[in-house]
Amino acid sequence: MNLIIAVLIGLLYATGAYLLLRRSIVKLVLGILFLSYATNLLLFFTGGLSLMSPAFDDGSYPDLSQLSDPLPQALILTAIVIGFGLAAFSMVLIYRFFKETGTVDLDELSDNKK
């Protein structure tokens, strides 16, 4: 299972990197989304994979270490919500960018091109 997840993380990072390198600003933002997926998963992965044993402690568990690691999950939860803020902001930025410049090609922005 570890191997599958590791491959997936690699794939997500590769996809994110490839999209970041596109000239289209939309793909750039999608690339950022993929990078955050990959990072969330990586973070999740470091806590260890424990099947169907979420970190809920009602006082009845004899061995708490059987539960999944709550700390990465808390971090990821925060990261997801912040990621949402970032994604929403970037989307609107793309929109405004297009309205102002009439293009979605990042190279058009460069001073060198002008």
Binding site: A6, V7, I9, L42, F45
Partner: peptide, 16 residues
């Protein structure tokens, strides 16, 4: 990049 990151992930699994 993906290969390196995937390897890193594989190595860091369950490291807590």
């Amino acid at each position: 990049f993906g290969v390196v990151m995937g390897t890193l992930a594989f190595l860091s699994a369950n490291k807590k």
